[in-house]
Design a protein around this nucleic acid. Structure first.
Lengths: 139, 139
DNA sequence: TCCTACGATGGACGAATTCCAAGTCAATAC
DNA sequence: GTATTGACTTGGAATTCGTCCATCGTAGGA
């Protein structure tokens, strides 16, 4: 679908079998996987891939700005392949599922200079919390 | 200053020496401490207090809504005693320092029903990221 | 094809947090 | 004041998530 692989190659990202598989996993699934889930899916295609390699690759994709890291509470970080369109997240407080949302409004514009305490503000993350329909049904 | 202890007692929170010390630490400092920092300050008054006890007490204070848990990336969670006045956070991406901020706007109102995916949305957290003056000066 | 720097490996390590079984104690009842 | 009891505390083990490191392998240029 997307040209993630192609983009990476153009940017000079050294392409190995392992890195390709990690990128393909992220590219294929438009959900928010944990590092462990990425490892599991990658290992399905390339059984000898190592956990450290997956962490390395994910870390570089984050640095390259191709993937966003989403920290939710005490749980494992999740990796969001949809780094290009600006969006925020809706997290289920029971199961940790994440959905992308596009609220109106501009959080950055809502923070006046008097509330910035001399910080150089570079961005804002908005996280909505709630229970997903599945968890609500399971009551 | 505050009546945190009094409130807790009224709510039937069983008061032990350990719990009192943890509550006093949070009540005294209006900063955002990690569990370890709470332990250190508590141990200064009650040397034999155990780490597990601090975690237990913090967990209950969070459940009671007296303290907010603030997860910042891969670092240790921080505990915010200012749970009663609604506010958001400005985090230094270098040193992890947190400041309370009060932006205008209402994130919840900005999320239309069509973007809620059947979730029961209970709240929104807004986290601004940037560099604090100290870290910027240190360049 | 050959080189070589960069990537992969996996096991050890580390930080933060939770779990557990046994001992202790605050609050209530008498 | 004493007895009672269920809730709280303890500390060490266990878990979870992630990083480090020395060694081995290989992608991609010459």
């Amino acid at each position: 679908m997307s040209d993630l692989l192609e983009r990476l190659r153009r940017r000079g990202w050294r392409m190995t079998a392992q890195r390709r598989v990690v990128a393909e996993v992220l590219d294929g699934e438009h959900v928010h996987l944990t590092a462990d889930e990425v490892l599991a899916r990658a290992a399905a295609r390339l059984p000898e891939i190592s956990r450290a390699t997956v962490y390395n690759a994910l870390g570089e994709l984050v640095l390259l700005g191709e993937v966003r890291e989403v920290a939710t509470d005490g749980r494992a970080k999740r990796y969001d392949p949809n780094a290009h369109r600006s969006h925020h997240h809706l997290v289920c407080s029971d199961c940790g599922t994440i959905r992308d949302v596009h609220p109106g409004g501009d959080p950055l514009a809502d923070l006046p200079a008097s509330e910035r305490f001399g910080f150089t503000v570079s961005g804002a993350e908005l996280t909505y919390r709630g229970r997903c329909p599945d968890c609500a049904a399971r009551t």
